[in-house]
């Protein structure tokens, strides 16, 4: 997994609440058997008009969002389906971090598995970023996981929490399966204990 330490990039704002994974990557694109190539379908039904041209009314198509690598959205981002295609599509599009007041649990876990940093910021801080977005000019943010802080223009500065285990995995880009496989003796002992109790058939 690609480690995440610090990233500076253009921010795109999506001031919508309850953005579900069906919007992030609609079902017609879930039939691929690869992890890559989902970026062009990100937010498909919002992003394109019926004739396939970009929808000028969609936030990510605004000129100031061109080249964005940090997405700022409303609360409960990523709710709904467990599809990991959602973080795959965000990462494939070029996003390294998503900032929101809250995330759905499965989506949050899926981001952590892919080196895509999901940053929970206070509601007021996210509103301040939305206000920056309303100016219609491109702006950059810096997300620093080493010191759990987001900084930006006009003195924007906000801290965030992340559980120490997840944080370490991301900072070091660790392979979680490899970590668990190191616990083989404990797993085997658990299985023997349960078998002795007659619980594993």
């Amino acid at each position: 997994m690609q480690p995440f330490t610090v990233h500076t990039g253009i921010a795109a704002v999506l001031p919508r609440v309850n953005v579900d994974t069906d919007q992030i990557i609609p079902k017609q694109f879930l039939k691929r058997i690869e992890r890559t190539g989902f970026g062009k379908h990100l937010f498909h039904d919002w992003r394109y008009l019926p004739d396939g041209s970009p929808n000028p009314g969609f936030e990510l198509n605004a000129p100031q969002a061109a080249g964005a690598s940090i997405l700022v959205a409303g609360p409960n981002f990523g709710c709904g389906s467990s599809r990991e295609h959602a973080p795959w599509a965000l990462a494939d599009y070029g996003f390294r971090a998503v900032i929101a007041p809250s995330f759905a649990d499965i989506f949050y876990n899926n981001c952590c598995q892919n080196g895509l940093l999901a940053v929970r910021l206070e509601d007021a801080a996210v509103r301040a970023l939305f206000a920056l977005g309303e100016r219609g000019e491109p702006f950059e943010l810096t997300v620093d996981l080493r010191i759990n802080r987001v900084t930006g223009p006009a003195g924007f500065r906000a801290g965030f929490d992340m559980d120490p285990y997840r944080r370490q995995m991301l900072l070091e880009g660790l392979d979680e399966i490899g970590q668990t496989l190191r616990q083989e003796l404990r797993i085997a002992a658990y299985e023997r204990r349960m078998e002795a109790l007659g619980r594993l058939v």
Binding site: E84, I106, N109, N110, Q113, E176, I177, T180, I187
Partner: peptide, 12 residues
């Protein structure tokens, strides 16, 4: 769970 966790459970 997501697909990475599916892989995790398959392996471990």
């Amino acid at each position: 769970i997501g697909t990475s966790e599916v892989e995790h459970v398959l392996a471990t």
